[in-house]
């Protein structure tokens, strides 16, 4: 149990996917303009991460033992097609949820956080439960980073930023300061 809590908190705060591993930077820098959109994108990504963890575990356990060199190709193909399939299923079963996730669902497939999760989980040899908890923590961490960033960016729109700084340069420096703040969490578990 303790182990699972550690995996969750580590993925959520200490090794935050965006701020410590630089995964999923495209949506982090591109879509984090509005608070509400960021939150929705975070939830959709969490959902896809959990599905990915399931797929990765299944592939690793039953198929890739026989052909480890196919790992990367099979991961990306299976993840992309599963997301496509889920998209169709949600569209059919729950149009409201589909509308809420919108364009983000297909776009998430190309988010490197998804493939990163599958590879990290494999490298660390997580079993099914550990993998799912890891995915949950990573997704929550991604949502947290997105929401924090969106809040900060909404603030900067109201303040007087020099014209040269505006855009990606400013966002990257804000992300750097956020990342510095998250480094403070590193001491959370070292004493125990």
């Amino acid at each position: 149990m303790n182990e699972l809590v550690w995996i969750f908190v580590s993925a959520l705060l200490i090794n935050n996917f965006v701020l410590a591993y630089f995964l999923g930077l495209c949506p982090f820098l591109g879509v984090s303009g509005r608070l509400e959109t960021s939150f929705r994108l975070g939830l959709a990504t969490t959902f896809v991460l959990i599905v990915t963890a399931l797929c990765a575990w299944f592939l690793n356990t039953y198929i890739l033992i026989h052909a480890p060199y196919l790992r990367l190709i099979s991961f990306i193909v299976v993840i992309a097609s599963t997301v496509q399939f889920i998209e169709m299923a949600i569209k059919k079963l729950s149009p409201a949820l589909f509308k809420a996730l919108g364009i983000f669902l297909p776009l998430i497939t190309t988010n490197c956080a998804i493939l990163g999760l599958a590879i990290f989980a494999t490298n660390r040899g997580y079993n099914l439960v550990e993998g799912l908890i890891f995915a949950l923590g990573a997704g929550a961490g991604f949502t947290l980073a997105m929401v924090l960033m969106a809040g900060l960016r909404e603030e900067t729109e109201l303040s007087d930023v020099p014209a040269l700084m505006q855009g990606t340069a400013l966002n990257l420096i804000i992300a750097g300061i956020l990342s510095m703040a998250f480094m403070g969490f590193a001491g959370l578990f070292s004493s125990t």
Binding site: L164, A169, A175, G176, M180
Partner: peptide
């Protein structure tokens, strides 16, 4: 060499390019 340095250095380089 820690993650924040990466963000901040790239931010500054982009700033230089804007300039």
């Amino acid at each position: 060499i820690l993650p924040p340095g990466g963000f901040i250095t790239l931010g500054l380089i982009l700033l230089f390019f804007n300039w």
